[in-house]
Design a protein around this nucleic acid. Structure first.
Lengths: 219, 219
DNA sequence: GGGGTGATCATACTATGCAAACTTCACTTC
DNA sequence: GAAGTGAAGTTTGCATAGTATGATCACCCC
């Protein structure tokens, strides 16, 4: 018998897949900041045409990861201290409260999913998976999802992606992995308990600590 | 002698121009919600190829105005009460504080620009310009710009665009134009005075009032 | 006549190719 | 030798066109 899938299987377009790949590469710093992005080169490297390449780049532009100079091409947006402060400021404004609301209206289902995300994250950290930034985002979002509207999800994704870029670039992962692990466990426990005030405080502290570390790395 | 231009003259691509046009049309409700968007149709209507059409739609998708079902096309995202509440919740969280910070670090230059935006807005309202939603956004952003980073600008643009869509769809403009005019004047005066606490309170009230009106229209 | 099956049509998605624009660099002129 | 000029070489941006996929409908079997 055919077993039904939990994950809807949809055909992902080339541009859609490329979007993820390019975003990961930029977040990993594999493309130097300010460096021009040659459409032909990417198309050749992936053995595809320029059309899906352009579409992926346009999406990354809307995310603020690359900028477009007309008739001159796409460039990786430079990392600036100003933007880092900006992003974390917004996260501190939005995410603690959103997480608290998520904790309040989380169902059993939501709790399962959040815990699964945490386990996947810890497993990724344990095996030094370079994609653990992705799992970190997924965990943070899972805590928010139960109560958040689509716009909140979208904005927080945007902010977490950009924050992730700064963290990965300026900090050695091992240094924060253990601390983050500890904090994530605390967050999770508190979130499951549904303690609104406490979870809000913890999340604020979690983000603030990362920002402090980042400031230190930026000297 | 050649007079130097204040506005950098850059070549705007077809997809870039189309992005603005389509966004305005969706905001005006000229494309029914849930309605499929035929790429061929748009390409034919504007006498261009499908490539720039797709790029414009991809950008609108990142903005949340249209959604994409793989191999089935783009659809105008439906308006929901949940999203409206979500968007205004975020605006209330971000915009008052950002405006207050803008007021504090505004230069003479910034003040001139903000006042120019307000005048343009009032003029657009006076002549019943259907594009006055655009000028409203520009005014709100001008108050924030002096102190805001690029991400704050981007997020607030996103939120204001979506908020604008709900306002235009559910409310008759004349009803709020006069009240908004009054409030904008107060905001402007207070902003110029640099009264942080007061401007924060006023902006919060301004957004809250719009939300209340919107809730009323939604019954 | 209802449910399943296959052919036809419409549309999305991507490859190829081309013209316009930008960059680079050799060359000329002062 | 420095600055200006023009041609060659890249690269972007878009049009054309083909392929693949999903939707629609007629047809068949029960």
């Amino acid at each position: 018998m055919i077993t039904p899938q939990k994950t809807r299987l949809v055909s992902r377009s080339i541009s859609d897949q490329l979007y993820d790949v390019l975003r990961e590469q930029i977040l990993n710093g594999e493309v130097g900041e300010g460096e021009p992005i040659r459409q032909d080169g990417i198309a050749a490297a992936f053995e595809i045409s320029k059309i899906p390449v352009r579409e992926a780049l346009v999406r990354l532009q809307q995310d603020g990861l690359v900028s477009l100079h007309p008739k001159r091409g796409f460039f990786v947006t430079p990392l600036t201290r100003k933007e880092a402060e900006d992003v974390f400021h917004l996260r501190l404004l939005i995410e603690p409260e959103a997480t608290a609301r998520g904790a309040q209206s989380a169902t059993e289902e939501d709790a399962k999913k959040a815990q699964a995300c945490l386990e996947e994250l810890e497993s990724a950290v344990a095996r030094q998976d370079p994609r653990r930034g992705v799992y970190n985002r997924l965990f943070h979002l899972a805590l928010v999802e139960p109560a958040a509207g689509p716009t909140t999800i979208h904005v927080l994704t945007l902010l977490n992606v950009t924050a992730d870029r700064y963290v990965r670039f300026h900090m050695h992962m091992q240094d924060i992995d253990t601390r983050a692990n500890q904090e994530h466990r605390e967050l999770m426990a508190c979130w499951l308990a549904g303690n609104k005030r406490e979870i809000e405080k913890l999340m604020r502290k979690h983000i603030q600590t990362t920002l402090d570390d980042l400031r230190g790395a930026l000297k």
